[in-house]
Simulated scan of single mutants.
Amino acid sequence: MKSKDKTANYKPAVDREKDLKLAIYRIENGRAHNKETKVTIAAVAREAGVSTALIHNHYPAVAEAIREKQGRSSRAMRDVKHQDLIAERQKSTGYRQEIEELKAKLASIASINEVLLEENSVLKAKLKDRSVVELVSAQPRR
């Protein structure tokens, strides 16, 4: 009885990386053995006969090359997110400034309101002190 050597499926990293790059090349040129047409990590893994985890965990440069071919490189995505962050920070600064302006206006309106309330109470007190007779308008004749 022959026992299978467990190391028979293992290739040196250099050879495995060549296999992955060849798989990318075959897919790009329409020569894939398994009819893959789009360069994705999953497609390259299938074409090379490995798992996607192997590419992600042991060949990050190959994974990045695949993402670049898809237009999704981590560097490009990071740059886009950084630009979005800068834009959001600018909006946030504008909102904070607007909030401060609105707080100042609110304080001013509250102050004016207090003055008007005080004037109203003074006028009401003056009305009570005087013997003012309220005139009731007569009903118009028909």
Rank of each mutant, 00 (worst) to 15 (best):
Y25D: 09
K126F: 12
I55Y: 00
K105H: 07
A138L: 13
T93R: 07
S73P: 02
R96W: 04
S92M: 07
V132A: 13
V14C: 12
E36H: 04
H58G: 15
D79E: 10
R46N: 05
L135T: 15
P12G: 14
L123S: 12
D129F: 11
A8R: 09
Y25Q: 07
A13N: 07
L22C: 03
R96Q: 12
Q83N: 12
A13Q: 06
I41A: 03
K128W: 15
V136M: 10
N120P: 11
E101N: 07
S108N: 14
D19E: 05
I24Y: 01
A107T: 05
A8S: 15
V136T: 12
E98K: 02
S73Y: 01
L135C: 14
I112P: 06
H82Q: 10
A23Q: 01
Q90K: 09
I24Q: 00
R89I: 11
D129H: 13
E118F: 09
Y95N: 09
K126Q: 11
E47N: 05
Q90T: 12
E100Q: 08
E47Q: 04
R89Y: 08
R72M: 10
A8Y: 11
A125F: 07
K103M: 04
L106G: 13
K124E: 13
V39F: 01
I99A: 06
K91W: 06
K126W: 10
Y10M: 10
K91P: 04
S131F: 11
K103G: 08
L22Y: 04
L22R: 02
